[in-house]
Design a protein around this nucleic acid. Structure first.
Lengths: 128, 128
DNA sequence: CTCTCAATTGACTTTTACGTAAATGCCATG
DNA sequence: CATGGCATTTACGTAAAAGTCAATTGAGAG
């Protein structure tokens, strides 16, 4: 496992701009270490970026992504906090399950749409 | 089946503002008929709004939603257009399948996170 | 040391998706 | 008829998430 990644390496890997990665740093989503002023991203930062991109593709806002990332971290030590955390996780999961339903419905409708197109194509093919 | 819905009925049903529905009209996503200046939404408009909301929950932009809605419509009559449409639909489906993978991964990680919390809770419970 | 090139910082701009306010229309009800 | 309750239009505002640009800076090659 590599120890450090440069910012441009990661911009290439994830197809984002340096501006974006710095923005994520400003937002506290990643904390690359510094050698002088140069950012050195560790594997853990890289993994976080992967999770951020996933969140983005799913349409989560930066704040929501921040929340989700919080959940991946070490569980808190206090019982109240733990219960709160569990409740939040359950909420997010329900949210994701809703997205999954939306997704399946949309896929189903697109299947239908494609079928209509293919049928129409067959009709046209037959009439030629 | 109801013939018409008022704008406020729909704002309540979908929990959006009138501004939003008018915005969707400006964007050409719905075309309610008019009685005088008053908008009358038909069942088809209502169905479109449902699809729009689904798209939004999945993180699609207005433009992407517009594209998807295009796909649900009557297939075009010309062969070239049909083939193009089919290709586009396939692209969207691939896009959705990616989202599904993202979603499953995120759900899996949240499962893990919750488990960690519960374990931690058990430890604390035992030590008390 | 100088040159160069990538990296950084900070400021300003842009796009998307609405929110909000003001002024006004339409109409049923007391 | 005036009052309340939706509706409409026009216009300006705004938050999120970067994009863009300019001015520096630092580190390594020669």
């Amino acid at each position: 496992m590599r120890e450090y990644y440069s910012i441009t390496e990661l911009t290439r890997e994830f197809d984002v701009s340096t501006r974006t990665l710095r923005f994520y740093e400003d937002e506290g989503l990643v904390q690359p270490v510094r050698r002088g002023r140069t950012r050195l991203f560790r594997p853990s930062d890289r993994h976080l970026i992967r999770q951020i991109m996933r969140g983005k593709r799913l349409g989560f806002s930066i704040n929501e992504i921040r929340e989700i990332i919080q959940m991946y971290k070490e569980p808190p030590g206090e019982i109240g906090q733990l219960n709160l955390m569990i409740r939040r996780i359950e909420e997010k999961r329900e949210n994701l399950r809703q997205k999954r339903r939306d997704l399946e419905e949309t896929l189903a409708e697109l299947d239908q749409a494609e079928e209509s197109c293919v049928e129409r194509l067959v009709e046209l093919g037959v009439n030629t």
